[in-house]
């Protein structure tokens, strides 16, 4: 699972008001190379929750994203390459996503998070 997917998922357990972002429990990370697409990254930049991406990439062992950003950074190839790597190339292969409010664990196996809720959570 790429961190772009993580940047969209949230915990939807009954009663939870802010299920985003899910915390990462990391057992295994896989890197897969993806072609660099600057236009796509420029598009994504305004849609991404930056802090969630930074925290998630750090949990995955990648610490090169800056805490603060400004639009002018998009002119820098170096910045875009880091953004590209964190967003698309790092995969959580084994581990879990943790609901920020309840601590409920959603396991990730073979890169697939299981977000199914139990009957009493719906």
């Amino acid at each position: 699972m790429r961190l772009l997917t993580h940047n969209m998922l949230s915990s939807n357990i009954k009663g939870v008001t802010s299920g985003f972002p899910l915390r990462l429990e990391v057992e295994k990370v896989v890197e897969k190379q993806v072609d660099f697409n600057a236009d796509f990254l420029n598009n994504m930049f305004v849609k991404i929750e930056w802090k969630a991406l930074v925290d998630a990439s750090r949990a995955m062992g990648y610490a090169d994203l800056p805490d603060q950003t400004e639009p002018s950074m998009l002119d820098s190839d170096e910045f875009l390459k880091k953004f590209h790597h964190a967003l698309l190339e790092l995969h959580l292969e084994e581990g879990a996503l943790i609901c920020p409010e309840t601590g409920r664990r959603f396991p990730v196996n073979k890169g697939i998070p299981n977000m199914l809720l139990h009957e009493d959570e719906v």
């Binding site: 772009l4 940047n7 949230s10 939807n12 985003f20 809720l117």
Partner: peptide, 8 residues
Amino acid sequence: NLGWRGQV
């Protein structure tokens, strides 16, 4: 009962 952030 999906939890999903929009816009992306």
